[in-house]
Amino acid sequence: MDAGLLQQMLLGALLGLSVYLPLRCGQLSLASPGFYAIGGTIAALLSTRLPALGGASATYPISSVLLEMGLAAALTGAIAAAIGSVVLRLRGIYLAIATIALVEILRVITLNLAITGGALGIFGIPQPFNGPEGYAFFTAALLALVCWLCDRLERTRPGLAMAAIRDDELAAASQGIDTAQIKLLAFVLSAVVAGITGVVAAHFLNSWNAKLGNFDASITTLAFVVLGGSRTWLGPVLGGLLLTALPEVLRPVGDLRLIVFGLVILLGPLLFPQGLISPERLQSLGRLWPGPKRLGRQAP
């Protein structure tokens, strides 16, 4: 398989996880592309404006990429905490609306500021790897790490509390769960994942502009989770991988790409309300599997 396509699929899976985290507690947030754009802009600005980060060697040092990721995580996390503490108090529909507005405001600002290069964006972002293979390895490691963290989360108290909030927020609150805190946690984690994904994407794409975090991107990433399922982390990963590969697989249809996405978003909730992967489905799969029951864990 083409390493460049694989890299894009891995980035898609990461973005899928970012949308999945708030949805796990029943909060529909469309803000992920906005935080992704912030991460990308940070990486693009730092790596092109600060020669000190470039180091002496021909390729851009990976330690600088990690530094950018750290900064992006801190900034997106802080923004998400500030916005989330206001918006998450409100009912579900307001969160979706507010996050759409957030993505649009960020897009308008990026489009108009001189430092972000206006409509053209920022070019010539330095490369830490010599080819897409290096990126794919790096991103695969990052994805594995985020998946592992999500898996831990699903089995521990905050993750179980998230599922409880999704199923019935009032009941969860009556059981002593601090619903506001848990929802905020999910929102911040989602922003951080999107932010660090943006850093990697900016280096990989070599240029960065306002178009990368627009409403289209919100729709695309939402489709990842709707197709894959939002109740376990495997769903969005699978959805992200599949739907990012889809345009390449369906290359002959070309212009139909977004129509196919639209169909997925329209028919997904009607035909598979749970998405392709749900804990129950994994469990029945686990029963078919002889030997150690790796997949057949209790549904959260």
Binding site: I93, A96, V226, F261, I265, L266, G268, L270
Partner: peptide, 15 residues
Amino acid sequence: DPLLALITSLGAGVI
């Protein structure tokens, strides 16, 4: 869940 209608109507609009 009414939030699902948000998603399906978005799909219809995109199509």
